[in-house]
Amino acid sequence: MSNEIFVVKSDGTRQVFETKKLHSSLLKAGASEEVREKIVRHIAGEVRSGMSTGDIYHHAFELLRKFEQPVATRYSLKRALAALGPTGFPFEHFVADIFKAQGFETLTDQIVHGKCTSHEMDVVAWKEDTLLMAEAKFHHEFGMKSDVKVALYVKARFDDLRSQTFLYGGKERTLTKGLLITNTHFTDKAIEYSECAGAALIGWNYPAHGNLHDMIIESGVYPHPYHV
């Protein structure tokens, strides 16, 4: 007789419960080794077949909040961002809301015309003499990363737009900065390329200052559901 425990994912499918996945999730959130071991041991002793992965996450989060509140806040916020999917459109509007909190006017799902071709732009934001355009890359799994091919593609799009003028806020403007924003991370190659080519990347914890986590905390704009 199998001793495997099957838990239910958010899409209704069943999978074998593996402590290493929970351990990895807590590690990515920044939990210390001692706390990770305590939580994994506690959850492993209580999990039963038929439990949902959501219930397991919430239980782990409550324990994490008890042991390490700042880490629990990051853990919850990152999960809430991932829950914005699956289409990615809610993430675009979430990014626009952050810019609004910074004093920008914004529009989403724009068609903008470059020197060579037109482009679909997820977010356009403007105030005073600043015009920002952002490509919002949403990933519903924490481990997924935007790679160098994405960075190359987005940089080429912004290069095509660089010399053009755009009518926003009742006046003609030129592009101040193009941004590639993701709710997770970038590969090392994507970062290496962007730093060399001058492409602006914003990820969950990249760059060290002014990353997505910083922008959320500073703006006070949070995804739903979000629990602290």
Rank of each mutant, 00 (worst) to 15 (best):
T117M: 14
D122P: 05
A156E: 09
A96L: 02
V112E: 09
A134M: 13
G210T: 03
H140P: 07
A197S: 11
E34V: 06
R79M: 10
L167K: 14
N205E: 12
L212G: 00
I217P: 00
V40D: 02
K177H: 00
L180A: 03
N183G: 06
F104S: 04
S219W: 04
V95K: 04
L175P: 00
T117D: 08
P223I: 06
T187L: 08
V124N: 03
D188G: 09
R74Q: 05
E195C: 06
L107N: 07
G114P: 06
G50Q: 07
H42M: 10
D188P: 01
V8R: 15
S49T: 12
Y206E: 00
V124G: 02
T117F: 11
I181K: 03
S194C: 14
L81R: 14
E62P: 01
E33W: 06
K20S: 14
T13E: 09
E195T: 13
I43L: 05
A101F: 08
L26E: 03
F158Q: 01
F61G: 01
H185W: 12
V124P: 01
L161K: 10
F17G: 06
R157V: 06
D160M: 10
G85Y: 09
A134W: 06
S25L: 13
P225Q: 07
V228D: 09
K78M: 13
T106L: 05
L77P: 01
W126I: 07
G170C: 10
N183M: 08
